[in-house]
Design a protein around this nucleic acid. Structure first.
Length: 1160
RNA sequence: GCCCUGGUGGCGGAAUUGGUAGACGCGCAGGACUUAAAAUCCUGUAUGCAGUAAUGCGUGUACGGGUUCAAUUCCCGUCUGGGGCACCA
């Protein structure tokens, strides 16, 4: 019987369905194995042959593991929310739910066709309320949590509230605002709104502001994808960046954990590297530059204006005189000063102290400027200058400072009472409201913090650059520069972030007219804005060091800003010296130091003068979590007086935050009929007034959440809904990655309606053992799901904090596009006259080789080909003078090309406008050109797996996809190559069942040779599957079948184990043969054969023998041969002697089992 | 621009830890079987030179250097294809 794959595959599928062989239980004695494919988005185009590549690999691995005795979870589902469905809805009016359903059905059919072993009873779809109920629930967990940096984990927000009530936030710096300080009294005095606003700055899911693409004409916010060449893809309207209130996930708090726990993952190094780079941890310093009061006229010099900035409390004329003294004092710190400083520095008492700080004409030991409190540590010397000290105290008192003195002895013997006294003094000062009064030297204009990884270059700062969106820009810009700055900001609004950072050759920027003061030299540093500085990175401001940074250098050159060289001869004036080796020069106290030493020195100095600090910065930004779209998960958030509440807490007023039940979930996505955006860039949901404005529940009105909020709520109008409703819903929806960030957990317990998954299920299945998908998810999905997993772990919902133990990347299968070449020619009538028929001239297509020559005027055959074509043209258009020029190319649907040969009739049918076209052939054929590119509908190079399966069967398709090459490498699809794999399966089939003779398997005893072939194959297949080298397994099967065919082997002893071995690859054929071999049950449940070494090991090896590295002869030796024996024999060999040319061997290299090399 | 990744015959690829480059398959060429076709089977197939031939010698893993007895594999530089760059999924 011949290999009838259609029948075989149908029979196998029917059997599997009847026996429910893929059903997976959460209860099993077997070891578990969780194998997962990345969540597919069901696009309208259906699957093409590239998609199943990873699915086939995971299917093979899953089937293999099952045969090896594991309880294997291998589920599939759909990431069903997303922009394309909504786009389609806008274009065609079809509801996304309808098209999504249709697309999923199509995907499912295509997947089934290929014979995957998914347990479909566990299917999940992110767009179903039963699923997104839990997406919303997890969002609420994040909303009700904050990140404890000391415990290094997420904790419930109510624990934070408890801490605030007890001691304010002195021990818990605010992630959003480092400088935010309040104590328990202040916290309790806060209104509900103030408290909620404060908590918002700590929450893991929080609201902030972010820029989005805004299109005025479409009245909507656009995704990056929808903006092409600076205009909207739909309609080509102008777009600009607009700031909008958005939800965010505070993934940055997890940056360090996401970084360090990468080490324990079995991911490719490159994948880990990409995540590391994305997180982008860099160690450097934050340096604060005070703004100079000197404005546009400020050409250097220290301002005489007493309105000095911030801590600049020195008398301007004296500062440069006093400053060296101050430094001297600091370097010769007494023991007492040293001890005291240890207790005062770094905000330990909740306020900032500075030491050896110049106040007016004096240097104070320690000063807290906001409290105007000076601490003096007096040594012996003060005994002799009491009078002077009194004068000095008087002067300082006049300036509004309080001075308290301690003796060195007091400090050294017991510091605690000293600190107590200081604390009391601070409290007393606070009560007198000193904190809120301005300094007598004048309030500063503020400061600009910058982050730099190269603080050592601080003496090379020639200018500063702020991001154009930086909040200070408007404040500092001088009137003269206002217009220029506004124009520049408008320009930047039109630029994407990518353009801003990648177009390095184009230098743009604008001077604000303002200056900052260099913390060491007091020099005036001009402040510019430029698009190359991004608001979201670091502090949104940089100190520019042109001599050491490429972009700063280009900027300085472009705007003629003088460059300070701090690298001596290493800087040549033409190019920045960005190397991290060398000596710092021309840099005050850093001169002569190495970069590493200078970095240390400058950070210490900055900390001492309180102008900066060591800082770790991450490139990673918090994840934007709002979309102004319809087709996504609604937020379980409602606003009361514009304050966002989790829907669980609002409806459970008696519970404290985070204790709410889930009964209010899901917030279902309402049905809508038109998808037009809401007002002011809001999503379509904002148009549903009835849905947005919900009635304030009685229970809340009666027992309000907090006293005080009640009146506000009743009397103020909401900013949404123009006051008609009292409570409104969030109208944004969640982004595409919301549902996919946790779906792997749902598969473990997909029908649970009381929990996202039971703890028992998540404990059993635990991490995903093997996760297969493309590298395009390297930094999006993979990072977000890692964060969600960590958060769920921190909050005690699951027992592991990394989702994917092993990750395997799959390459893309690219399309191979086909092109036809259209002739371009000039023409004119031989007789003068009007060119009436111009438009009716048929198009002429030229076969590839002639077209290539015609396009290459330098080609040797150019003239010949051109003459040939011209002659043909003259024949077609006899009344014209025609001159062929060159060709352009048009895409041809690969379905109407056989290999490279165009089916002309099919082409004319496909493109009726070319029905009259002429074709210039070669050897009677029209040959197309080819190019490898992404497989996509628009390129007409899509190959549908359904067609391949229909023609060759699923088993052939599966094996061919694997045979194409390594799973992780991209490669083009070539339908022609599939013949070889198909032939192989037919050949294998013939070992069992002959076309004439029928079933030919016999029970003869196997020979050693046959057993050797079998066991070698089993060994290689197992090893290859374990290392995911599926292409070489297919080769090995081919070699095996070739050898068995040569031997004419039809023995059950050999062929039965082979059926099980090939089952992961060609399950349908394996099932059929398994049945015909007379086995009960399914081959799916068989046991994978184990190879026996005794059939595989050999005891001799044919060694390649080389002279000076060049192989000259093969010699066979026993594997356990001694070097001396081998050496003797080799050197005696005729050919070796010939190549040694009589020279003595210098070295004899013998690598056991590998090779032999004689060096002369 | 930045990060990651690839480049080996006409094509997909193999070479698992630095050890005989081109396994296996496609394509192509020749042959067998056949009235013919399909199917199947056999032979050859990186390249240059020499030879009727067996074979021999040289070159060759994008390009240019380097390390090594030995490099597709390790290092440096260059060119080039692909993926990602934060609202496609």
């Amino acid at each position: 019987m011949e290999y009838n794959f259609t029948d075989i595959e149908q029979r196998a599928k029917a059997k599997w369905a009847k026996d429910e062989v893929y059903k997976v239980s959460n209860e099993s004695d077997k070891p578990k194995c969780y194998i997962l494919d990345m969540f597919p988005y069901p696009s309208g185009a259906g699957l093409h042959v590239g998609h199943p590549l990873g699915y086939i690999a995971s299917d093979i691995y899953a089937r293999y593991k099952k045969l090896c005795g594991y309880n294997v979870l291998h589920p599939m589902g759909f990431d069903a929310f997303g922009l394309p469905a909504e786009q389609y809805a806008i274009e065609t009016g079809q509801h996304p739910a309808v098209t999504t359903e249709k697309n999923i059905a199509r995907y499912r059919e295509q997947l089934d066709n290929i014979g995957f072993c998914y347990d479909w009873s566990r299917q999940v779809r992110t767009s179903e309320p039963q699923y997104y109920k839990w997406t919303q629930w997890i969002f609420l967990q994040l909303f009700h949590s904050w990140y404890d940096r000391v415990a290094n984990k997420a904790r419930p927000i109510k624990e934070l509230t408890a801490i605030f009530e007890k001691e304010g936030n002195k021990n818990i710096p605010c992630p959003e605002d480092d400088a935010l300080r309040f104590d328990s009294v202040q916290w309790k005095d806060y209104s509900e709104k103030q408290q909620r606003d404060t908590l918002m700055q700590y929450r893991l899911a929080y609201q902030g502001y972010a820029q989005v693409w805004w299109c005025e004409q479409l009245g909507t916010v656009l995704a990056n994808d929808e903006v092409v060449n600076g205009v909207s893809e739909r309609g080509g309207y102008p777009v600009e960046r607009k700031n909008m209130r958005q939800w965010f996930l505070r993934i940055t708090e997890y940056a360090d954990r996401l970084l360090t726990s990468l080490d324990n993952l079995e991911w490719s190094d490159s994948m880990k590297e990409m995540q590391r780079n994305w997180i982008g941890k860099s160690i450097g310093a934050e340096i604060r530059f005070d703004l100079s009061p000197t404005l546009s006229e400020g050409e250097g010099g220290v301002s005489q204006d007493p309105q000095k900035a911030g801590w600049n409390t020195a008398e301007p004329t004296l500062y440069n005189l006093i400053s060296p003294l101050r430094k001297d004092l600091k370097n010769n710190q007494t023991e007492a000063e040293h001890i005291l400083w240890k207790h005062l520095k770094a905000n330990q008492l909740g306020v900032k102290f500075r030491r050896q700080h110049v106040i007016g004409r004096f240097i104070a030991d320690f000063v807290c400027l906001p409290a105007k409190l000076i601490i003096e540590a007096d040594g012996k010397i003060h005994e002799n200058q009491k009078e002077y000290d009194a004068l000095r105290t008087e002067y300082l008192n006049e300036k509004g400072f309080k001075v308290i003195r301690f003796t060195n002895d007091e400090i050294i013997t017991n510091i605690n009472p000293v600190i107590e006294k200081i604390k009391n003094a601070l409290t007393a000062r606070a009560e007198n409201e000193v904190r809120n009064t301005s300094l007598s030297f004048g309030e500063g204009r503020g400061e600009v913090p910058v982050f730099t990884t190269r603080p050592d270059t601080i003496f090379g700062v020639d200018f500063m650059v702020l991001a154009p969106e930086h909040e200070l820009v408007d404040d500092i810009t001088t009137t003269e520069q206002k217009e220029a700055i506004e124009n520049y900001k408008t320009y930047v609004k039109s630029r994407s972030e990518r353009e801003r950072i990648s177009e390095v050759k184009q230098v743009t920027g604008c001077f604000t007219g303002a200056y900052a003061i260099h913390p060491f030299t007091q020099k005036q540093i001009p402040i510019w804005i430029s698009e190359y500085v991004l608001a979201g990175y670091g502090t949104g401001a940089i100190m520019a060091v042109p001599s050491g940074d490429e972009r700063d250098h280009a900027f300085a050159k472009h705007f003629n800003i003088p460059i300070t060289n701090i690298f001596g001869d290493n800087y040549n004036g033409n190019e920045a010296y960005s190397s991290k080796t060398g000596i710092i020069e021309n840099s005050g106290f850093l001169t002569g130091l190495s970069i590493a030493d200078a970095t240390e020195a400058v950070i210490n100095e900055l900390e001492d003068i309180d102008a900066g600090k060591r800082k770790i910065n991450y490139r990673l930004r918090d994840a934007g979590f709002s979309r102004q779209r319809y087709w996504g998960e609604p937020f379980p958030i409602i606003y009361v007086d514009d304050i966002p509440y989790g829907i669980d807490e609002n409806l459970s007023p008696t519970l404290s935050e985070g204790e709410g039940g889930v009964s209010q979930l899901p917030v279902e996505l309402p049905y809508i009929e038109n998808y037009k955006p809401g007002p002011e860039g809001q999503g379509p949901l904002a148009n549903l007034k009835d849905w947005v404005n919900i009635n304030f529940p009685e229970s809340i009105q009666d027992n309000n959440i907090k006293t005080g909020a009640q009146n506000e709520v009743r009397n103020t109008s909401l900013s949404f809904g123009e006051g008609r409703g009292e409570v409104s819903r969030e109208t944004n929806t969640m982004p595409g990655y919301a549902g996919s960030s946790w779906y792997f957990l749902r598969y473990m317990d997909p029908h649970n309606d009381t929990e996202f998954a039971s703890r028992k299920a998540t404990d059993y299945w635990n991490q995903v053992d093997l996760y297969i998908g493309g590298t395009e998810h390297a930094v999006g999905h993979l990072l977000y799901s890692r964060m969600w997993t960590k958060a769920l772990y921190d909050l005690g919902h699951i027992g592991f904090d990394e989702p994917f133990k092993k990750l395997l990347n799959q390459g893309m299968i690219q399309g191979s596009s086909r092109f036809a070449y259209r002739l371009l020619f000039s023409w004119g009538p031989i007789m003068p006259g009007p060119l009436t028929n111009y438009r009716s001239l048929p198009t002429i297509f030229i076969s590839k080789n002639d077209a290539d020559i015609l396009n290459d005027t330098k080609s040797l055959n150019y003239q010949t080909v051109k003459d040939k074509i011209d002659k043909i043209l003259m024949a077609i258009y006899p009344a014209t003078k025609i001159d062929s020029q060159r060709t352009d190319s048009i895409r041809i649907d690969v379905a109407i090309v056989d290999g490279f040969e165009l089916n002309i009739e099919a082409f004319k049918k496909w493109r009726p406008e070319y029905a009259n076209a002429e074709f210039i052939l070669e050897d009677g054929k029209y040959i197309c050109g080819a190019e490898v590119e992404k497989m996509s509908k628009s390129k007409y190079n899509v190959v549908n797996p359904d067609d391949i399966v229909a023609q060759y069967g699923a088993d052939t398709f599966r094996m061919y996809e694997m045979f194409l090459g390594p799973i992780d490498v991209s490669k083009p699809w070539d339908t022609k190559g599939i013949e070889g794999v198909h032939r192989f399966l037919k050949k294998m089939w013939r070992l069992y069942s002959d076309e004439q003779k029928g079933w030919v398997v016999n029970d003869d005893a196997a020979t050693d040779e046959e057993l050797r072939i079998l066991h070698k194959t089993i060994k290689k297949i197992s090893e290859d599957i374990e290392r995911f080298s599926f292409n070489t397994s297919v080769s090995q099967f081919m070699i095996c079948i070739n050898e068995l065919t040569t031997l004419g082997c039809h023995k059950r002893a050999i062929l039965e184990p082979l059926v099980v071995a090939i089952c992961p690859f060609a399950p349908h054929m394996a099932e059929e043969l398994w049945q015909q071999l007379g086995n009960a049950g399914s081959v799916i449940n068989a046991a994978f054969p184990i190879h026996e070494d005794r059939y595989v090991t050999e005891n001799t090896k044919k060694y390649p023998v080389a002279v000076n590295g060049k192989t000259r002869v093969d010699m066979e030796f026993p594997l356990d041969a001694e070097q001396t024996t081998i050496e003797q024999e080799v050197l005696a060999n005729e050919i070796i002697q010939k190549w040694m040319e009589g020279k003595a061997p210098k070295k004899f290299i013998y690598v056991k089992g590998k090779m032999i090399n004689v060096v002369v």
